[in-house]
Amino acid sequence: HNLTITQGKLFFHYNPKLCLSEIHKMEEVSGTKGRQERNDIALKTNGDQASCENELLKFSYIRTSFDKILLRWEPYWPPDFRDLLGFMLFYKEAPYQNVTEFDGQDACGSNSWTVVDIDPPLRSNDPKSQNHPGWLMRGLKPWTQYAIFVKTLVTFSDERRTYGAKSDIIYVQTDATNPSVPLDPISVSNSSSQIILKWKPPSDPNGNITHYLVFWERQAEDSELFELDYCLKGLKLPSRTWSPPFESEDSQKHNQSEYEDSAGECCSCPKTDSQILKELEESSFRKTFEDYLHNVVFVPRKTSSGTGAEDPRPSRKRRSLGDVGNVTVAVPTVAAFPNTSSTSVPTSPEEHRPFEKVVNKESLVISGLRHFTGYRIELQACNQDTPEERCSVAAYVSARTMPEAKADDIVGPVTHEIFENNVVHLMWQEPKEPNGLIVLYEVSYRRYGDEELHLCVSRKHFALERGCRLRGLSPGNYSVRIRATSLAGNGSWTEPTYFYVTDYLDVPSNIA
């Protein structure tokens, strides 16, 4: 807008934040220059609390790290170098490059900038070799853009010569660093050979998330399962459950009422301010606690030095998902009996873990797994792929695949051998790939016309006998059925096997 004052003059007093240069501009645009008398524009009460600059400061050096910015700028000295009290560095987070010096300023003089007072450097006698002032900004957020400017702080001049310097606002972004852990990993099994893994992005990506790394490792069953005799009275049979499938998407929606109208769909109840505040506090606490764990609990591995020492970490090797089922080394339970199943799973520490690289999504279907087997899954978020990966501390989750139908069934015939004193040795093959492992066998036998009897055969007993022995049988026709019990439950009964026990007292003698 054009402003013209045809008559009258300007009068400025007691404006401590208004620089004289701005008042002189007002004289020019209003056409009143030359009308004012000496005392109409006070030299001592206008701009006496402001830094009124008329020179431009330029930054000469900028260096960044993930949490620091090192700045240096060209030296500046007023005509009387004693008038320079120091520099004021202003900075704040700036997602967009549209910041002005006066953003967030209120009537009390406060604003949204963080201000650092910096002492002037030592003055050199040689004007050509003056030290460049600077400042190291610490405690910054990774991968965050900051708006920065600097200006001088000078003393009051009796001659009211307006001098000083100020830089333009520059924008500097800190470097990326390792992201925080992925949030809320959930693993479920939808079949006997697959596990579905879902997660949420890290709360602090500290860069642009480029991919996720998912490692999985087959877990050995508890050692007590191999040692305890679950045929003993009072000892509860062990059981394991597989990871249940995901709930429906509708039930997972946030901010939804727990109660549904019987007449149909209901609208979600909005969260109160107290609920939102509580969630923010919980989120802040979780982030602080995660940072504490990362800094205190997890110790970084030592990389190899120039002395030739090897990095103890196993090298990563990509495998196809079809090879995942046989990740671990199978060892027989008892070496003397080769027909026992290889369900003991000690994992070799030198073995390469299978892994998958996930790009542009937060889910993965891990296939080719062994049925009813526990897996430990390790999830890392990465925001750099080359020249070397920059990934987060791992988040861990466990899951067990679903049982395989008929995996616990005894394959092959049940054979028998009759000894003296009416002892019958029953023999059968253990299931080759049971659900988890076989903890015991149930032997059901009966003599024709009598009630059915049951015998429990422990895992250890089966390994020693290759089956079991029935003792003290009365003469007669017998039928026997056997079924295995694994961590997933009972298998199917075998087809009945028949044998006849004679009275050993009636056996004919070869003595003449």
Rank of each mutant, 00 (worst) to 15 (best):
I438M: 06
D222A: 14
Y448M: 15
S344Y: 07
E350V: 09
V507R: 12
D291M: 06
H294M: 03
K460A: 11
H254M: 08
S398L: 10
T303S: 08
H461Q: 10
N255W: 14
T241V: 15
H454R: 13
N477S: 11
R319A: 11
A381D: 01
V457W: 04
A395C: 11
E451S: 12
E217F: 08
I276E: 02
E404I: 10
G264E: 09
P270L: 04
S444C: 14
E310P: 07
S257C: 05
P332C: 07
D222C: 14
S398A: 13
V296E: 05
A336K: 12
T272P: 04
A336T: 10
N383T: 05
S341W: 14
N383A: 03
D311M: 06
S284A: 15
D291W: 04
S305F: 13
F226K: 11
A309H: 14
T502R: 12
I438C: 07
P349Q: 04
L379Y: 03
N326W: 04
E404N: 12
N255R: 07
P332N: 04
P245Y: 15
T328V: 14
V480C: 15
K302A: 06
R483Y: 04
V358F: 11
G472I: 11
L437Q: 12
A330K: 14
P431L: 04
V480K: 04
I276Q: 12
P387F: 12
G306T: 14
S474E: 07
S398C: 09
R447M: 05
A463L: 11
E290H: 05
C391R: 00
P332S: 12
N360E: 11
E282W: 06
C269W: 03
N339M: 06
L505H: 09
Y441V: 12
E465F: 10
L473G: 00
G207R: 10
H416D: 10
F246W: 13
Y500S: 09
G234Q: 07
Y498H: 12
E249C: 10
F499K: 02
A394R: 11
E281C: 04
V424S: 01
R370A: 12
N490C: 10
V345R: 11
T210S: 14
V345D: 10
T415K: 07
N422Y: 11
T328Y: 10
A407S: 07
K357T: 11
V359I: 10
E362F: 13
T494M: 04
N477E: 09
C468W: 09
H461S: 10
E451M: 14
T401K: 01
D250H: 08
E281V: 06
G374F: 13
Y375I: 14
T210I: 15
V507L: 00
V397D: 01
G489R: 07
N383D: 02
Y478F: 07
S251E: 08
V439W: 09
F246G: 12
T373I: 11
F372K: 01
R316F: 15
S223R: 12
S320A: 14
K357H: 05
S486L: 03
G449K: 09
E282T: 05
V414M: 08
S239N: 13
F215W: 00
Y498Q: 06
D229V: 03
R286D: 00
A394G: 13
V331Q: 11
Y445W: 09
G264W: 09
D408A: 03
G449D: 10
R313I: 10
D506A: 08
D273A: 15
W493F: 11
E430F: 10
D409F: 14
E221P: 13
R400K: 04
E351L: 14
D311Y: 13
W216D: 02
L505A: 07
K317C: 09
L225F: 02
V397G: 15
E420S: 03
M427L: 09
R313K: 12
F372G: 04
Y375C: 12
I209C: 14
Q219W: 15
V359M: 13
S348T: 05
P314F: 07
Y259V: 11
T303E: 14
N490R: 12
L237E: 15
P270R: 10
G489W: 15
I366L: 11
A405P: 02
E465L: 13
E260H: 15
T241W: 15
Y441N: 03
S392D: 02
V296G: 05
V414K: 02
F499S: 00
W242M: 02
R447H: 08
Q252W: 06
V358L: 08
Y230R: 04
C231K: 07
S509M: 09
V507N: 15
F215N: 03
D323A: 10
L225D: 14
K317E: 11
S348R: 13
D250Q: 10
Y500Q: 05
E249Y: 00
S305G: 04
V345W: 09
Y292W: 06
T401D: 01
A463V: 09
C468A: 07
H425V: 15
V214T: 09
T502C: 12
V480G: 05
Y259K: 12
P312V: 13
R319I: 15
G308V: 13
D506Q: 14
L455H: 12
L379K: 00
D503V: 10
P244D: 11
F337D: 08
A309R: 11
Y498V: 11
V324G: 07
I482K: 04
E451L: 15
I377F: 07
L280R: 09
R240C: 15
E356Q: 08
L379N: 04
V423D: 13
E221T: 12
V480Y: 13
E362R: 13
H425I: 11
E420Y: 13
T307K: 12
H425R: 12
L440V: 15
E227A: 10
G325I: 08
V480L: 07
F355M: 09
T494V: 11
P434Q: 08
G322N: 06
R466S: 09
N360P: 13
S243I: 09
D229W: 02
W216P: 07
H416I: 10
E420N: 15
S284L: 09
P338A: 09
D506C: 14
E465V: 13
P270V: 04
Q252L: 12
G412D: 11
N383R: 02
R353Q: 14
V393R: 01
L280E: 15
S248E: 01
Y498R: 11
E279C: 01
E281W: 05
L455Y: 11
L455K: 08
K278M: 09
W493S: 10
F355Y: 09
T340Y: 11
E388W: 08
S479Q: 10
S392K: 02
S262M: 12
L470P: 02
Q256C: 04
I209T: 15
K406L: 08
S257A: 13
F246Q: 12
D250T: 11
R390A: 05
P270T: 04
F499Q: 08
R471G: 07
Q380P: 00
V365I: 03
L473D: 01
S341L: 09
T340S: 12
P270F: 06
L505C: 11
I377G: 08
Y396G: 05
A330H: 14
L505G: 13
P434T: 06
V214C: 10
A335E: 12
C267S: 04
V297I: 06
P300L: 02
F298V: 02
T347F: 07
Y504C: 10
K406R: 08
R390T: 05
L505W: 09
H454T: 10
K406G: 13
R481G: 04
E247R: 08
I482R: 01
S223P: 14
E217R: 15
A463S: 09
P434H: 05
H461D: 15
V334Q: 07
T288C: 11
T502W: 03
Q219P: 15
P387K: 14
L505Q: 10
Y292S: 03
Q429K: 15
S243P: 11
P270I: 04
L437Y: 15
Y230L: 09
P475F: 06
R313W: 15
A488Q: 15
K271A: 08
L455Q: 11
P244V: 14
S257G: 07
R316M: 13
